[in-house]
């Protein structure tokens, strides 16, 4: 099939950027969306033009690197599917496709469709872990964890950190991402100890990094390729209130 693409091209953070039109010809329905872009890029290189830059790595939907807004929807029209797992059979011959980068203040564009998501890493760095030293831990079965709790923790832990939730959010908020990590660790006895401080510092980091706040539109849940639920955001809010009642102001120190 033949398609018309409008792709965001931007040389760097200082460049204004613009949509450019490309033709994608002889696209097989078996191609993945990224393979379609590979094909377009091969054509561009043959013409001596620069290839469209886009992030991708594992191409099996788990590394969280791919990040494109396709026709207004992060990761495209297919539910619970990353761009790399989206196949061209979901498009029709003659379709026009708009491809844009994740847009948020906290995700500056580096080039074309590539954005800088290190703000998400910094949220985790501020407290998204259990502070355990290597070695000196008890036997794995020493602390029992109810299966129901582990299952919820795992539902939350499936987050791949792609940032689609931020891209979809009208406020550019990272609440679903942060809530997933807060919930994952708060559900387990190993993470519970630091839960109060964690939720406080992680939410403060969100603000510092320029993410917006949650207006409960639930766009994030609708686009999440891993089906992370907004009920985790309620859980984060609950954890925050609990933390605030116990000790206002994250002042537990290092």
């Amino acid at each position: 099939m033949d398609l018309t693409l409008f792709v965001w091209r931007q040389r760097g953070q200082l460049d204004k950027g613009r949509l450019e039109q490309y033709a994608a010809r002889n696209i097989s329905p078996d191609m993945s969306f990224l393979e379609m872009l590979d094909t377009v890029n091969e054509g561009l290189i043959a013409e001596g033009r620069e290839a469209i830059a886009f992030d991708h790595d594992c191409r099996e939907g788990i590394c969280g690197m791919c990040s494109q807004v396709i026709n207004g929807i992060p990761h495209g029209p297919q539910e619970k599917t990353t761009v790399c797992q989206l196949h061209m059979r979901h498009f029709k011959d003659g379709d026009t496709i708009y491809i844009e980068p994740w847009r948020a203040k906290a995700f500056p564009v580096i080039r074309d469709l590539i954005v800088d998501r290190s703000s998400l890493d910094r949220i985790i760095q501020s407290g998204g872990y259990a502070s355990v030293h290597t070695g000196g831990v008890p036997d794995a079965n020493a602390v029992l964890v109810p299966k129901q709790d582990v299952d919820i923790a795992m539902d939350a832990a499936e987050c791949i950190g792609c940032g689609a939730c931020v891209a979809a959010c009208p406020n550019g908020a990272a609440m679903l991402f942060t809530a997933a990590k807060v919930t994952h660790l708060a559900m387990l006895p190993q993470g519970r100890v630091e839960a109060a401080r964690r939720v406080c510092v992680m939410t403060e980091t969100m603000l510092r990094e320029g993410f917006g706040s949650c207006s409960n539109h639930y766009e994030c849940q609708a686009v999440c390729p891993k089906g992370i639920k907004v009920s985790f955001i309620a859980k984060l809010n609950r954890e925050y209130l609990k933390s605030f009642m116990g000790n206002p102001g994250c002042s537990t120190g290092e």
């Binding site: 008890p138 029992l144 299966k147 582990v150 832990a157």
Partner: peptide, 18 residues
């Protein structure tokens, strides 16, 4: 042991064991 302490949600049975 290390991974469990970090909060890796390994599968467990209904009694809470790995």
């Amino acid at each position: 042991d290390q991974c469990v302490a970090q909060g890796v949600p390994f599968a467990r049975d209904y009694a809470g064991y790995l």
